[in-house]
């Protein structure tokens, strides 16, 4: 009982802090921005929660969406962002067949070597190659992008996530919320807006209230309506691009997600049944024994 009282007391005091934060969110963007800059805590706005096909215990990737996301990555993002850890061969998981993967890989030039003469040479990509990087090295990437190297895409969907705060992070255990990365990416890509009046944005940066590091970031808005044409007739909008590329990045970061959740379901079913059997066994063993 005292335990209960103590935990309620703590919960109440902590909820107080959370309450302050949520009340503040009702102010306008300018006040929020000023508040964030003053306290040095970003992002100004929490990412919006989106519906993802891969969320929840039975989540599965939407292959058509991943294919669209790949197209967005290839035609837009890959100009600056590498994706070093992903091999072309794994694109088969997006629903492409052997020949399609081969053809896709062959569109890229890959450096190989040294050859018999001791020289490096360029050849067409093969499925066992990884996505080649747009820049020779991190320093070159930084130099070409105003001093900040664009992050690698391979794990970005797991390497980004905004703190959920109390008590949301407790509820997340039961709702299995693991989509902080894609939510963040989608919000960031669709969140570019003009800086509120009176807010100074540093030269060469772009205001975005969803950016986790500051009030503005070096990357200019990368997507615009109509930039990529989808073969399956999905809308050519920034929102759609952002959604698809975020899903694709989640796949790139966690390619075995479906297998994991499928295996998990079998494990849970087994453990529940096994727990029931052990419970009955225990009851039977203790049947004639007071304890």
């Amino acid at each position: 009982m005292k335990k209960l009282v103590a935990s309620i007391a703590i919960a109440a005091s902590l909820a107080g802090f959370a309450g302050v934060a949520s009340a503040a969110e009702e102010h306008d963007l300018k006040a929020l921005t000023e508040h964030a800059i003053e306290g040095g805590h970003f992002p100004i706005l929490k990412p919006k929660n989106e519906d993802w096909s891969f969320a929840g215990p039975f989540g599965k990737y939407d292959k058509a969406q991943l294919q669209r996301g790949l197209k967005v990555y290839k035609e837009v993002c890959s100009a600056c962002h590498s994706m070093k850890l992903v091999a072309f061969r794994s694109l088969e998981e997006l629903g492409y067949n052997d020949a399609q993967v081969k053809a896709f890989a062959a569109q890229y030039d890959v450096q190989d070597g040294p050859n018999g003469d001791g020289e490096m040479y360029t050849r067409k990509g093969v499925p066992s190659d990884h996505f080649p990087s747009p820049f020779a090295n991190e320093e070159a990437a930084a130099a070409a992008n105003g001093g900040a190297a664009p992050p690698d895409f391979s794990l970005l969907a797991k390497a980004r996530g905004v703190e959920r705060g109390f008590p949301t992070f407790i509820f997340d255990i039961f709702t299995q919320y693991q989509e902080g990365g894609p939510d963040y990416i989608h919000s960031l890509l669709t969140g570019y807006t003009n800086a509120p009046e009176g807010i100074q944005v540093a030269e060469g940066t772009h205001f975005n209230p969803y950016f986790a590091g500051a009030s503005a970031l070096k990357m200019p808005p990368p997507l615009s309506d109509g930039q990529v044409t989808f073969d399956d007739g999905a809308p050519a909008t920034v929102d759609q691009y952002a959604r698809d590329v975020a899903a694709f990045m989640m796949w790139a970061a966690e390619p075995h997600l479906e297998e994991r959740k499928r295996t998990g379901f079998m494990v849970m079913v087994f453990l529940v049944i096994f727990a029931g059997l052990v419970y009955l066994t225990k009851k039977s063993i203790y049947a004639n024994k007071e304890h």
């Binding site: 087994f270 096994f274 059997l277 066994t281």
Partner: peptide, 19 residues
Amino acid sequence: RRDFLYLTTGMAGAVGAVA
């Protein structure tokens, strides 16, 4: 009845261990 229960539990445990 008891033996059946113990046997089932034991076998489930063995299946789990192999998996």
